[in-house]
Design a protein around this nucleic acid. Structure first.
Lengths: 360, 360
DNA sequence: GTCTGATCTCGAATCGATTCGATCGAATCG
DNA sequence: CGATTCGATCGAATCGATTCGAGATCAGAC
C-alpha cells in the first residue's frame, strides 16, 4: 500500500458541470435546502455517482457554516491514565452519548505531552475540560480568544467557563462524620494528585494550600471540616498501585490511623491491599472509606463504604451544556450531589480490650 | 452563562488592515513561510494582539491545505464497552501517542449508535479501524470514496486497507497444544462476540461459519487446528460478567470440560469466577487459558496462563501507518506475534483415581 | 394577449486563509 | 552610471462549498 497521487477528487462544480446545472443548484440538490425539481435532483445524483463523488467536502462546509461539528474533550492526563480511571471513563461516556446523538464528533486532546500544541489549532465548536487544574489557565485563555464555549467538569470557577460541579466538600464531610460517629479519632487521608507534578508524599500545609487540583482540594477541605488535623498523604494518581503505596506509608508505623479516607475508590482498593499485606484486618483494625462508587473488584468479600457520585450524569450534563453553547443557545451550570453508601469496610473503632486480647 | 452573539471575530484581513499590510504579508508573518522583515512582522503581531486575534482559523487553513490534521478512530462498540477492554485501551493509547507526537488530533467515532452519521461527514485525513467486523464494509466504502487512507487493526483483508494484524490463529493453536500436552481432551472455548448482534450462546457450525468477527474467527480456527470438535460458547462481549455467564453454561453440567480456552483475559477471569461459584478447583479440576496478557486483577492467588500480545505496539504501528499514509508517504502492513505465558491456571488433567478420592 | 404568482434555476458574493508570480525599491557590481 | 540581483511586499487566484437575491419559465386567471 502506498500513498501515490491519484486523480484529483471530484468537487461539486465537476458534478454540476456533468449534470448540466450550476453549482448552486447542485448544492441545493445535496442539501435539500431549497426547491429543486425531482428531475434535476436525480440528474445531479446520477452525475455524482458517475464521478464517484462522495458528497460535499466537510472542510469547505465547515468553513462556510462557521462550524466544524467537533467538540474537543481535554484530559489533563495521558490517555492511558485517563482510561484507567472508571470515573473519567464514565464521564467520557456520558459526553460521548450526548455528542453522538446531536451529531457532533468527539476530539480527544490531552493538555500535556506532545499533543498539547493541537489544542490551539484544532477545529472545534467548543471544549469540555475534564478534571482540570488551574494549570489549564493558558488553555482557557486560548479557547476564549478563539471564541469557543468552554465547559469544565469540577474546576475552580473561572469567568466564561460553565461549571459542572460536584459537592466534593460536603460529601467528604458527610463521610468523615460517618467515621467520627463510629468513634474514629486517628484518621488519615490519601489524596488525589494535589499539584501539577503529581508529587507523591506527605502533605505539608504549604503544599496543601498551594494545591492546584480542584477536586483533591475540595475533598480535603471537606475532611478538614470534621478532622482539622488529619494526616494526609498525596498519591501520584488515581490508581490501585498508588493507593497501595500510600497505604503502606500510612499503615506501616507504630502509631497508625484507625481509619483512612481515600479520595477515590481505586485508591481505597490500594489501601485495602496495603492493609492485607500488613495483616491489618478490615474493618476491625482499619476502616476504609472511598469516593466515587465505582464498584471496583478486588475487595471481595468486602463491599467498600464509599461516596457515590453519578459520573455518567455529570458527563451527560457537560455534553448537553457544550452542545447548547456551541449552538448559541444558553446553558446552565450544574452541581451534582453524591451520597454515602455504607459497605463493610468501615466499622466502629475496636474496643481496646478486644484488641489486646487479639494481640496476645 | 449564555451564547449571545458577540462582535464578529477578527480575521487575518482585519489584522492586515490594521497593520497596514496586505493579507498575504500578514499570512507570511504568521506562518513564517516567506521572507518578511522583522519590522513588519512585529507590526502584524502587534495588530493581532490589539484585535485579540487568536491566529489563523483552523478551518480555513485546513480547506486551503486540503488537510485537517485529524485522524478518526472508529470503534465498533459503544465507548463504554471499548474503554472497559484493556486491550482496546492500550491500542488507543499507542495510536494516541503517535498522533500526538505528529501533531494530529484524535477523533473518536463509533460505528453504531446515533453517532454513526458522523463517520461520513467528519473532517479527517485518515482513519484507523479498531477490531472491526466486515459489518464495517459500508464504512470502508465511504472512506475510500472520500480518498481517505484506512488502517485496520485485526480485520479481514480488504483492498486499499492497510492491515495491522496479530497471529491469532497460530498463537491460539500454540495455547491449545499446551493444553493437549497436559493431557486435556475435553476442551471448550468461550469466544469473543462472533457476529454483529453479539448474540450469546452455543456456537453451531452454521453460526461459526457465518461469523463476521475477524479476531474471534481466527482464534477459533487456531483452536480447531488442535481440537476440531471443541464445544464453543459465544460471549456477548469481552467482559468479566459475560465470561462468567459463559463459564456457568459450560461448567454447570454433568459432563464438563477439563479445560476452557477463553478468547480474552477478561473472559478468562469470568470463567474463573464461574468455577469458584461451582466449587470447581483451578487448575486441578479445570484449566483456564486466556488471551491478551492484560494482567487483570481478580484471580489471586493465581496468575493466568495466557497468550500475551503487545497491544500498545499494535497501536503504535497503526498510528505510524495512518500518519504516513495521510502524509502521502508509504506504509507497510504488519503482523505482530504473541507468546504463551504459562501461569498457574493450567495444569495436567487430574488423575481419575485422585479425583475419585476427592469426590468421596 | 397580458398579467400575476409560483416554481425552479442561476450568478455572484462569501467563509478565512494560503501561495504563486509579479512588482518595486534598494543594494551590489562592473 | 547603468545593469543585475535580491529581499520585501502585494494582487489575485484558489481551496470547495453555501446562500441570497435576481432572473427565467410556465401555468392559470382575467
Amino acid at each position: 500500500m502506498n500513498g501515490e497521487a491519484t486523480q484529483p477528487r471530484p468537487n461539486l462544480a465537476a458534478v454540476a458541470a456533468l449534470a448540466g446545472v450550476s453549482p448552486s443548484t447542485a448544492s441545493l440538490a445535496f442539501s435539500g435546502a431549497g426547491p429543486v425539481s425531482e428531475a434535476t435532483k436525480a440528474r445531479v445524483l446520477k452525475a455524482a455517482a458517475e464521478l464517484n463523488y462522495a458528497g460535499p467536502d466537510p472542510l469547505a462546509q465547515s468553513l462556510r457554516r462557521g462550524r466544524s461539528g467537533i467538540i474537543g474533550v481535554i484530559l489533563e492526563d495521558r490517555l492511558r491514565d485517563a482510561f484507567r480511571d472508571p470515573v473519567t471513563v464514565q464521564m467520557l461516556d456520558g459526553v460521548a452519548d450526548e455528542l453522538g446523538a446531536a451529531g457532533f464528533g468527539l476530539l480527544l486532546l490531552t493538555e500535556t505531552g506532545p499533543a498539547a500544541t493541537n489544542i490551539a489549532v484544532a477545529p472545534m465548536d467548543g471544549v469540555v475540560l475534564f478534571g482540570c487544574s488551574s494549570r489549564l489557565d493558558s488553555t482557557v485563555v486560548t479557547m476564549r480568544q478563539r471564541g469557543l464555549p468552554i465547559v469544565a467538569i469540577e474546576a475552580d470557577p473561572m469567568p466564561d467557563v460553565l461549571a459542572i460541579d460536584l459537592d466534593n466538600r460536603a460529601a467528604t464531610a458527610r463521610g468523615a462524620r460517618h467515621l467520627r460517629d463510629l468513634g474514629h479519632e486517628r484518621v488519615a487521608v490519601v489524596t488525589l494528585p494535589i499539584d501539577a507534578q503529581h508529587s507523591v508524599g506527605w502533605l505539608t500545609p504549604d503544599r496543601e494550600s498551594a494545591s492546584s487540583a480542584h477536586t483533591a482540594s475540595q475533598r480535603l477541605r471537606g475532611l478538614r471540616d470534621i478532622y482539622p488535623d488529619a494526616e494526609a498523604f498525596s498519591a501520584g494518581g488515581s490508581l490501585i498501585e498508588e493507593g497501595e503505596l500510600a497505604g503502606l506509608a500510612l499503615l506501616n508505623r507504630a502509631e497508625r490511623p484507625t481509619a483512612i479516607i481515600a479520595q477515590s475508590d481505586l485508591l481505597a482498593v490500594g489501601v485495602f491491599r496495603a492493609a492485607q499485606h500488613l495483616n491489618i484486618s478490615v474493618p476491625e483494625e482499619l476502616s476504609i472509606l472511598g469516593f466515587d462508587g465505582a464498584r471496583i473488584d478486588g475487595l471481595a468479600p468486602h463491599t467498600l463504604t464509599t461516596i457515590v457520585q453519578d459520573a455518567l450524569a455529570k458527563g451527560h450534563a457537560a455534553g448537553r451544556a457544550v452542545i447548547a453553547l456551541a449552538r448559541g443557545e444558553v446553558a446552565e451550570p450544574a452541581t451534582f450531589t453524591s451520597e454515602l453508601r455504607i459497605g463493610t469496610t468501615t466499622g466502629p473503632v475496636e474496643d481496646p480490650l478486644r484488641r489486646q486480647r487479639r494481640e496476645t
